[in-house]
Design a protein around this nucleic acid. Structure first.
Lengths: 243, 243
DNA sequence: AAACAGTACCGTGTACTGCCGGTACCGACC
DNA sequence: GGTCGGTACCGGCAGTACACGGTACTGTTT
């Protein structure tokens, strides 16, 4: 639990909004929050964090198909508390995704920055992703394979982990594209596409019972991601040449 | 009138016997099926087909989140009948996937075979996939984004559409790999990976409200699939990646 | 051989169970 | 006054039970 660095901003807009249903604040829009409310801000933040952690633990215990009751039990409380801090299951799911992304993305960044050759960067990133997934497959399933069936037809708050990673990858690719004078508009398709490539291959790998070593899978995916399918039709040109 | 005396007498097992074919040899040792059973085989086949079609229609009408009641209503009957032919929702879903795959895969094959240049084959296949998805996004969502949360502790017969297409692609890739003397073990990762690449990029494309033309997306994805990321770091020059 | 009881399926519909996400109401604490 | 927290519920949906009726096949009796 991280309790320090309480940034005392009287305007904590997004996070601790408890649904605001039946309760409409008075008309003086400037100051609607007094001490009786704001003194709970820190508690709310830690509680949210704790609930996200409980969700992760509950996934580890019960699998990717955990119910809200089990999550609440894991947190040592009841569903009501969960729903006081998260409007619905989707919001909690998004929070878990953010948390996992906050762990995964730095690892990816480190992996990339620890290499010099661009191809090695790709390989390192792929292997990092696979390592994460192999370390905790159940959490991975929860965080990647949970499609929110709702279609709110308007906003697109990036939700799943794949989206977050894809967005980040797209940014990196966009930077590289720009730096080398290419069309920047390819960044998003490439970023999401590359992530999806690894994701689908990883899904297959898990589903098939890991029929090869992780290192092999990394090598194959790096080949594909780096050089594409063009290598398939050219005979006698061994793809794993540069070693 | 002998009504209701044996209401529950023959509560036999699961209804839709695998029923490989309608002919059982007359002198087949153990007599299991007689005409009272086998005379329904054709009816069962058509009924199944009709229910799959009704599901497709129901998806078109109510969106990817259709319920079983709505599916049954679309078929002009009640849930009971649906469950007489499909043990559960998953089995119906798999049947729909098979049907869609049976439509999509030939199109992909045609698109590939109508080109000479391998790169053009890839482009044509990607564009065909995107065209399918653009033509009926709701059905696409149903067929691709329905994760079966069950974990039957062992093996799962390939279920989702992505898996089917990925499996097929892997076969093609494996053939090309073998023909050019490469390691065949890369086929499965590459096949599933390539399909996942297109799928994720397409998901992003739909989610973002189609921020570019389909042709553009096809072009970008073809670039990525064919030449990989290596082109990003090489400034401005379209390298054919040789060594 | 025809009649007949019995069987193995089909279909319709209603009402139910069970699970699970989400909520109403109530008490407890400042 | 306000917020936190728990119990007990609601509602929707997958899946089941059961009642009722129909048609074609099967083995047995007359």
């Amino acid at each position: 639990m991280k309790v320090g660095a309480e940034r005392d901003s009287a305007r904590t807009s997004a996070f601790p909004r408890p649904a605001a249903d039946e309760f409409s604040p008075p008309e003086n829009g400037a100051r609607t929050r007094d001490r009786r409310d704001s003194r709970w801000d820190e508690h709310r933040r830690t509680r949210r964090e704790q609930l996200v952690q409980a969700t992760v633990d509950a996934v580890a215990r019960h699998g990717a198909g955990v119910g809200m009751d089990e999550i609440a039990a894991e947190a040592g409380t009841s569903k009501t508390v969960v729903y006081r801090h998260f409007t619905d299951r989707t919001e909690l799911y998004v929070a878990v995704c953010s948390r996992v992304a906050a762990q995964l993305l730095p690892k990816l960044r480190d992996a990339i920055e620890s290499r010099d050759e661009p191809r090695e960067m790709v390989a390192a990133a792929i292997d990092t992703y696979l390592a994460f997934l192999e370390a905790d497959p159940e959490l991975y399933r929860f965080v990647v394979h949970q499609q929110t069936l709702d279609r709110p037809a308007g906003h697109d708050p990036i939700s799943s982990l794949s989206d977050l990673v894809g967005e980040q990858t797209a940014a990196i690719v966009g930077l590289a594209l720009e730096r080398s004078g290419h069309d920047r508009r390819a960044a998003a398709p490439w970023g999401h596409g590359a992530v999806g490539m690894v994701r689908s291959a990883a899904d297959w790998w898990l589903r098939a019972g890991r029929p090869m070593l992780r290192a092999e899978l990394t090598a194959h995916l790096t080949d594909l991601a780096w050089a594409g399918l063009s290598g398939v039709v050219t005979p006698e040109a061994r793809t794993e040449e540069d070693k």
